[in-house]
Write a protein that binds this DNA or RNA. Structure first.
Lengths: 236, 236
DNA sequence: GCGCACAATATTGTATACAATAAACTTCTT
DNA sequence: AAGAAGTTTATTGTATACAATATTGTGCGC
């Protein structure tokens, strides 16, 4: 298990900080889907009792990035392909309108911040930190949701983005796990121009594009190969 | 505190059953917004230790129908007016498409079940059980989400419906806290006819109508009266 | 060598104990 | 009488202990 090493000062560890650390590790693909998250192990790592670990895990379970199986333990979630499609479908329903609203609400500071995000993402890539770049790519979408000034929908998008990270880990076959930089730049420009209609359209096509990277997996070549191997090899 | 009386058999009490019982009590307005939910009190009622009560309360907190204030306790949530608008706005974004999808997926059994819901709702009203009628009115929307066969979005709608119940308790001024029966009947007919476009439009206007019952509160007549009273009465 | 039964161990679920914090109550000062 | 300060009590936060369940390891029979 590869996590953020807890800081030497453990007096301020809260269930929230534990949950956030685990969430980030999952988001950056440092914790793979299916990974067992043992309570004792985590309480050793974070130097707190199991009580706080359990609360953190429950919180992550409600975010649907951890699955708690009664009497068996907690595991990094493994969304099914159906769930994968549902998550992106939900994003296609929510995020274009959010982008439209963001275009109507954005301040110059917001635009600076969005551009900073892309800069940091490129810096992380250049430094070979793909997990960090992936995390920032997702955060870009969350920033747009924040700018849109609709907290209820932003909360929903937050959960969907987190789950998207797991889905990418499981079902993604493109070279890059990141959103295309051009799509994000175009979104920033539309938002900066306060062009709600364009922002909405760009986000829609961006998400349809992301979703299409999953569709390719409904007939995976690997699955066909296994089937051929099993029917041809009696040692299976 | 008025809750479901726990059954004499307490061997099967789980954190989930506690959370569900509390959720239903909140939904039916038996627990009003702002109500203190003390851990010791609940553990006495449900005859379990505080551990399980805390887990149940945390679960409800993630559903945003309970607010946990550190070192102060748990309270039935009191959504702000802003949150109220956001919740209905989110529903306006999600539920029309869900209704459309439900119209494409519905089976005859689904239609029977939806009609049963309205029947039960009327029976509850006739029996004077307004809380139950309110709960069933909300469940009607959840059933449509279930029929739509998109669990991710249905989960979101579930949370929004629960929060709607609190919002109705706080900000509703119509005679009836229920959705209008005609709107629900029309929805059933559109869904039964597999008319996705009509179902979507009907749900849209239904939710806009519900939302407008909140809008009335942004310039409430009561507030104007209070202002007039305060400026004319020096005893304030 | 494989499969099954049993024992030992590990882990999760829950209760209880202790610590920390807030709320309520009492006393003192002005 | 009102407000502030101090004390007591109640409640929440967290750790620890015990119970329940699952997993792993070992021995035996075929």
């Amino acid at each position: 298990m590869t996590l953020n090493t807890p800081k030497a000062d453990t007096t301020n560890v809260t269930t929230e900080s534990i949950a956030n650390a685990l969430s980030q590790a999952i988001h950056e693909h440092r914790l793979a889907p299916g990974t067992k998250l043992g309570e004792d192990e985590l309480s050793d790592i974070y130097r707190v009792s199991r009580t706080m670990v359990r609360a953190a895990l429950q919180s992550l379970s409600h975010q649907q990035i951890v699955e708690i199986k009664r009497n068996r333990g907690a595991f990094v979630a493994q969304p099914s392909l159906t769930e994968a499609h549902e998550v992106f479908e939900a994003r296609e329903l929510l995020e274009p309108r959010t982008a439209r609203s963001a275009a109507l609400h954005a301040t110059p500071d917001d635009i600076v911040l969005l551009n900073d995000h892309i800069t940091q993402e490129h810096a992380a890539l250049a430094a070979g930190d793909r997990g960090r770049a992936l995390y920032l790519s997702g955060q870009f979408h969350l920033e747009i949701a924040r700018i849109a000034k609709q907290q209820t929908i932003a909360d929903m998008i937050n959960v969907l983005i987190a789950r998207s990270s797991l889905i990418i880990a499981l079902y993604w076959r493109r070279e890059s796990a990141l959103c295309e930089s051009q799509a994000h730049h175009a979104l920033i420009n539309a938002i900066a121009d306060n062009n709600g209609t364009l922002a909405e359209e760009l986000m829609q096509s961006h998400l349809v594009d992301l979703h299409s990277a999953l569709n390719l997996h409904e007939l995976p070549p690997v699955k066909q190969n296994l089937k051929a191997m099993l029917s041809g090899d009696p040692t299976a």
